[in-house]
Write a protein that binds this DNA or RNA. Sequence first.
DNA 1: TGATTCTATGCCAAAGGTTAACAATACACA
DNA 2: TGTGTATTGTTAACCTTTGGCATAGAATCA
Lengths: 155, 155
Amino acid sequence: MPNNQEQFKDLLRKNGLKVTNQRIAILEALSDRPGEHLTAEEIYDVVKKDYPDIGLATVYRTIQLLSELNLIDKLNLDDGYVRYEIGSENPEENCHHHHHLICLDCGNIYAFQDDLLENLESRIKETLGFDVVNHEVKLYGYCKECINNRAVKSN
Amino acid sequence: MPNNQEQFKDLLRKNGLKVTNQRIAILEALSDRPGEHLTAEEIYDVVKKDYPDIGLATVYRTIQLLSELNLIDKLNLDDGYVRYEIGSENPEENCHHHHHLICLDCGNIYAFQDDLLENLESRIKETLGFDVVNHEVKLYGYCKECINNRAVKSN
DNA sequence: TGATTCTATGCCAAAGGTTAACAATACACA
DNA sequence: TGTGTATTGTTAACCTTTGGCATAGAATCA
């Protein structure tokens, strides 16, 4: 998407924020890796290749900014690092239907789409009066590859 | 449940672990507060009333132990604190069906039971070959009380 | 283009929850 | 009661993340 960068610049200007090389570089680092879940440190290392003078604090500040602009999604796996991934550009696949499968063996993260909770949320609204506006679903288990590897090993 | 403590002692002995006053006090602190979600610091403060010499490190170590014994459940709300709650003694209400509603206004946490994901998990197994063994569902929104308070305020 | 303004950056130090190290304690078992 | 070993309390360290501050640089206007 060559015009993604222009859209980002417009979005910054529209919010009274300045367009800087650092901000563009950090967004690009994530845009170039759709489906990957990078820590702040990993983003820092990637961006440093093209921009050796960037500071880690700038990465953290920009991550927060991108998160507030809903351009990236946060993922916390309770391993001491918060991870970030580029949001889908397709509004149909918004993050409300975007969930994660986490393999307990290899640590890989798989995404899947499902609107199963829609039904549950309206039921919660009716029975408890609680109005759900967002949710986070993490499924832990074992991926196909690791299941196969185990079967091979045990032979 | 007066025999809960005895069950705990047996469980410790069965695992080759020692029965200590600190471990019992920490489990009791959580058992006395079902449905509450306490941070390590909060558990520390509670236990210190009866056991002033206890150290914070012991609380952390015991929390980890109780978690491994599946006696308590972990809850991370991404606010910088990990919280813990006593697990249900009813096997029907196991943590696999135990989910959380978090009010974005007052911060209260409400629990609800649902087995909605069972269906999804078998579908994932069939289509992706991923074997789900555990899951974590957090629903964010606004509780009944806060919705009412808002309506009152805006009048 | 050049001056001005104010945001953004880089560097550094601090914050803050959690864990590690280690000597002292106390549980378990004979 | 004595011995061996796990557990505890204290303290310091860890490590990700955030705050402070002087400087650099983007936006705006002349």
